[in-house]
Design a protein around this nucleic acid. Structure first.
Lengths: 229, 229
DNA sequence: CAGTGGTCTAGACCACTGA
DNA sequence: CAGTGGTCTAGACCACTGT
């Protein structure tokens, strides 16, 4: 008898997917559900809270709980270290540093990260290989105002990503995916042709409102980012 | 005094990000933490459970809780209906059906969805516009073995996506992002040029092991998919 | 086998918000 | 102001898994 929160969750889920509870309709309140399932209200609460987190239902105090009319489906993507991503595929990982310079932050970067006019940044160009083949091109910019010690770090052996996760935390990040074209330079790095489509990830991170780093990652042609849910 | 689960969560979060609790190190158990924060164990449990869900810590019975050495950062993307996506941007949504055919499932589709040899599918080509400009091209395949009623549905006014979310549930989905090139046909649909890079989403959904639909969505050049976390 | 997290309970009070 | 979800508690038992 006594239902667990998983029982309650999956039973309600099936009521919704089977159409017993139509989209937009009002769901019994927690006390009623607790009586129906013969469990404590806290148990029902946990089930409902998870369904709300999953975007299946919508809860409001006093107004009650409703089935979402068009369920907001969400997908979760892991953002792993490139090295782990490659090694998890069973391939051998290799890294190389292709460029390093300390520069004043260019205008587009200042705008993107909300940096002041005098800001200095460390600019790195890196390549990541899987079994010797180009896998990912990394165009990395680190805010030296926040991380002066980055200037003395040795990025010839390990990538800046690994250094960063070990060195600084971040409180806030923005990530975006898009499709771009390989120019001559990028095509050369990725051993592909100019005009090939490249899957691109851009990420900016902040710590307590201060920009830490911006990175643009370009994958070899054919790359897919996949998840199940 | 009495800490809430949010207090506990954010305090532990800051202990980790500040380095007080190093990556890989063992965290006090729930009873000790409850004593430290002066709250019930259930409160600590909820805080820790959420941190574990966020990939910040790793919990194992008997072994205790550890700070993850390289935090698995995850990003969540909403997968909205195109119409909502466009309307939320404040643009006017328009839809049109550009092609419709009932065919035997081609080999690549059978392989992808694990369909039998005799399978029939409904193949639809649709366009979605934002303020009159091409926004997204939809190449949709619906398994008629699972959804025979799709053959009689009218897709000239509303897109198959809306029909599907209102008609059938799904238990399982796979989504993948990639970058592709516009061929002459696609470029024509999207009012772009051949060879332009297009951001592409592919999604397959199943219900209890049976394939429902596969769709390939191509966005107009310049499209970005962004999230914060 | 014993330590740790996972879950449930019955009851309580609070916070928000719709009528 | 009253109904609903949000959270906390103190205690209990269970499930898993290192040692």
């Amino acid at each position: 008898m006594k239902a667990t929160y998983k029982d309650v969750k999956s039973d309600i889920m099936s009521k919704i997917t089977k159409g017993d509870w139509a989209p937009g309709s009002l769901v019994p309140n927690e006390i009623e559900l607790a009586a129906i399932y013969g469990c404590a209200r806290a148990t029902v609460n946990r089930a409902m809270r998870e369904l709300a987190d999953d975007g299946i239902i919508e809860r409001r105090r006093k107004a009650g709980t409703r089935v979402r009319s068009s369920p907001i489906r969400q997908a979760r993507f892991d953002i792993p270290l490139v090295r782990r991503e490659i090694e998890d595929k069973g391939a051998e990982y290799r890294y190389s540093l292709a460029g390093r310079a300390v520069e004043p932050a260019p205008d587009w970067l200042r705008a993107r990260l909300n940096l002041g006019t005098g800001s200095k940044v460390l600019h790195l160009i890196c390549m990541h290989y899987a079994d010797g083949d180009p896998y990912q091109h990394e165009d990395r910019w680190i805010n030296l105002g926040m991380l002066p010690q980055a200037e003395d770090a040795d990025f010839t052996q390990t990538g800046p990503n690994e250094w960063l996760v070990a060195t600084v935390p971040f409180s806030d990040a923005e990530i975006s995916f898009s499709a771009g074209l390989a120019d001559a330079k990028l095509a050369d790095y990725l051993a592909s042709k100019e005009g090939d489509p490249v899957f691109t990830i851009e990420r900016s991170t902040w710590w307590e409102g201060q920009a830490i780093t911006y990175v643009k990652l370009c994958f070899r042609p054919g790359h897919r980012m996949t998840t199940r849910y």
